[in-house]
Design a protein around this nucleic acid. Structure first.
Lengths: 236, 236
DNA sequence: TGCATTTTTCTTGTCGACAAGAAAAATGCA
DNA sequence: TGCATTTTTCTTGTCGACAAGAAAAATGCA
């Protein structure tokens, strides 16, 4: 649990049945935004106080987060936020590149008109975040943009894995912008627009190729992050 | 809940902290073996009686199963075992073929000696199940064999998705053997042996190609299942 | 007889308490 | 002073109860 405890939710009457989801949503966002740092402890009693709810729904939310790999639990021991294995990101990169390709290819093959509208909305939100130099929003809207593309591909297995990878990418990028916070890559706005055009044109090969290039740039960016001269002060 | 209630676990003293896992393991197996049929209701109170444990750990096990797509829950409504969308298995097939390829290729690249030993053990268990004409064991050991290959590839993202697909494949195949229960494909024993040899030889291309052929045969087998003249009496 | 409404029953979501296990602090000893 | 042991405190896993919401059954009416 971080020193700076985030604000409690509004203490209005909750509808019965919404407790677990409320806790899950908030904790998930905090993990992805690195407000809950990798490796930090997660204490049920403190969470129960903070959310003004009993421990049972807290625990259920934690089971759900554990199932998504965002936290780690062992019996009778305290839970903690999952670490990111920065020393071995290769499996992550491999999976990301392949999933960028597969989901974008499938979107080119299977999208529907309403899909394109959703994708465009997310594209606009991303462009706005870049223009506003809002790193948190940029990272989140980027993930949502690509997730919308995956949904348009209509394969829930790939979409599920890709969402998980996008989540992890959010944490990695959040750390990057925490430390450096300078680069707002306008060229990604342009690349996203090109991706949309290829998808709309149902050019599966073109979309696959572009998605690969796009993903490989992100991989390169993250790799360069770890070859910088100045240390990152990571607690590993 | 099926008419024929499976046996309760041994009512010995449980170690504190093992309750959720016990329930999870048993329910998961029953879902995968189709003892709990797709679409059937899941009742916490009955499970609590059956397992001689309070509802809280039951609920936690159910959250975990829901996270894996094996059951479906909505707030304030009864939970049920996930259906299998037999009318649209194409996403499943696409994901299976790709994951068979990716995991087998990665195993050829990254395996260690102890991995091969584990893979061989599972291969032998599969061969024994085929020889004994034990369909349940054959389905389970086949999944374990391929899961062990995926583990040898050392990419937990792909392994995670593949395990989920293998689980779903278990349910589909279980239904097949429930209905027809005749075919015990000895040639898959031979193909598994060949896969091992290619992996051991670190022939990534060969392993990828063979994995694709292998997976496409399974897809074909399942597809033929649904083009049979005699109806399956599926409740959809 | 068929439908709408009301009542009863059942199931789910959460509560707060108890106790086991782990972690931290205190004590004892060389 | 450093280590081992004991005691205390804290956290987790589970319990059983309460009440909200849903589903089933009963009642009322045309």
């Amino acid at each position: 649990m971080t020193e700076k405890s985030p604000a409690s939710p509004a203490i209005t009457e909750r509808k019965r049945g919404s407790g677990v989801k409320m806790v899950y949503d908030m904790l998930r966002d905090e993990i992805l935004d690195l407000k809950l740092a990798p490796g930090s402890p997660v204490d049920e009693m403190q969470l129960a106080e903070r959310f003004r709810i009993s421990r049972t729904p807290i625990r259920e939310a934690l089971v759900r987060l554990a199932g998504e790999g965002l936290i780690e639990t062992l019996p009778n021991r305290s839970t903690m936020v999952s670490n990111i294995d920065f020393l071995n990101l290769n499996p992550f990169f491999d999976a990301m590149v392949l999933m960028y390709r597969v989901t974008t290819r499938l979107a080119a093959q299977h999208h529907r008109p309403e899909d394109l509208a959703v994708i465009r909305d997310h594209h606009e939100a991303y462009a706005a975040a870049v223009a506003a130099r809002d790193a948190l929003a940029m990272i989140a809207t980027n993930a949502e943009f690509h997730a919308a593309i995956a949904e348009a591909g209509r394969n829930s297995y790939f979409t599920g894995l890709f969402r998980r990878l996008l989540d992890e990418g959010r944490r990695i990028l959040r750390l990057y912008y925490n430390s450096y916070g300078e680069e707002f890559p306008g060229r990604f706005v342009e690349e996203h627009a090109r991706l949309i055009a290829l998808i709309e044109a149902r050019d599966a090969e073109g979309a696959d190729r572009m998605a690969r290039e796009h993903a490989e740039q992100i991989v390169l960016q993250v790799q360069q992050l770890f070859s910088r001269k100045d240390p990152l002060n990571l607690s590993l």
